Amino acid sequence: MTRIDATFDRLRAEGKKAFVSYVMAGDPDYETARDVVLGLPAAGVDIIELGVPFTDPMADGSTIQLAGQRALEAGMTLERTLNIVRELRAQDTTTPVVLMGYYNPIYNRGVDQFLIDAKEAGVDGLLVVDLPPEEDTELCIPAQKAGLNFIRLATPTTDNKRLPKVLQNTSGFVYYVSITGITGAASASAELVAPEVARIKSQTELPIIVGFGIKTPEAAQDIAAVADGAVVGSAIVERIARGDSVSDVLSYVADLAAGAHRA
């Protein structure tokens, strides 16, 4: 059982939904990003998604793209991203960490070496947006064998013919993208999300976490109420981009987490 599995078991026992937060590693610099990550568990975050900066983030909107650019300009690398995870593990051995990003940095490091390093650092799962199920032998299956969950995205355009393929070899949870398009777009609607979550649940026992377009505690609560939890990314990254202090960012995250946990 991975930390992700254990976290969902705990939340189910407590009758609570999950709150997942995304931050970009190294944005706007290593120290600030590290301090935010180290503060997330105490702010109520159940699972941390840690973005790995990449030069061509094709699935991300401008907010996340700019965060990645700031991180790269500040000297962020895959190795330094793993170092943030190591620093978290020095004080927290239970909160799951999912690395979210693109295949190129992993490929450049070498899949076998990356998986050894990620496992050693304390990573629990991977969400690699540009590796479709047809490429499972590249990373997904080796990651599972190494004890890491491999999380997939499902979207409003993932029809019933495609869905079984997306769910194939997926573990940990399914990340349902509530809005068609890039990150940071529009606002999520619980009314529209609910039947889609039910459709996916009819084909998997994995938890369904919903992200994109959640910016307020109320929205986090509404979305978590119709799923197994909510993800917030761009709205947190926007606070970091405008120069909010670490304590202010974590206070905002705590409000979002409280909203999701009320669901």
Rank of each mutant, 00 (worst) to 15 (best):
E31H: 07
E31T: 10
M24L: 07
D46P: 02
D46K: 00
I47V: 15
A42F: 03
G51C: 05
E31K: 08
D29V: 08
L11Y: 00
A33Y: 03
S21N: 13
G15I: 08
V37F: 02
V36L: 12
A33D: 02
P28K: 13
V45Q: 00
A42L: 08
G26H: 12
G51N: 07
A25T: 11
V52S: 10
K16G: 04
V20K: 02
T32L: 10
V37P: 00
G15C: 09
E14L: 12
M24P: 05
A43G: 11
T32F: 14
D29W: 09
L40Y: 15
G51M: 03
D35M: 11
P41Y: 13
Y30I: 01
E14P: 03
P41A: 11
F19R: 03
E49T: 05
R10L: 02
V36M: 07
V20I: 13
V36H: 07
R34P: 05
V20Q: 03
A33G: 14
A13C: 06
K17I: 05
P28H: 14
V36W: 06
V23G: 04
I47W: 14
E49V: 03
V36D: 08
V45I: 00
G39S: 14
G26Y: 11
D29P: 09
K16R: 14
Y30P: 00
Y22R: 07
A13F: 05
M24A: 12
G15P: 10
A18C: 07
K16Q: 09
V37L: 10
V45W: 00
G44K: 15
V36Q: 08
A33Q: 03
D46T: 01
Y22E: 08
V52N: 12
F19H: 03
L50G: 06
A13Y: 05
I48Q: 10
G51S: 06
G26Q: 13
P28I: 12
G44H: 15
P28F: 13
A33V: 04
G39F: 13
V23A: 06
A42V: 03
A43D: 09
K17P: 09
V23Y: 04
D29C: 11
R12C: 05
D35W: 09
E49F: 03
A33L: 04
D46Y: 01
I47Y: 14
G44W: 15
K16C: 05
I47T: 13
D46I: 00
M24F: 05
L11C: 00
A42E: 14
D27K: 11
P41I: 08
L40F: 15
R10Y: 01
A13S: 15
T32S: 13
E31N: 06
G26M: 12
L38V: 02
V37W: 02
L38C: 01
L38Y: 02
V20N: 04
Y30L: 01
A25E: 10
L50F: 08
K16E: 08
A13E: 14
S21H: 10
A25N: 11
R12G: 06
A42R: 08
G39L: 12
G44Q: 15
R12S: 12
V52Q: 12
V36F: 08
F19Q: 02
K16I: 04
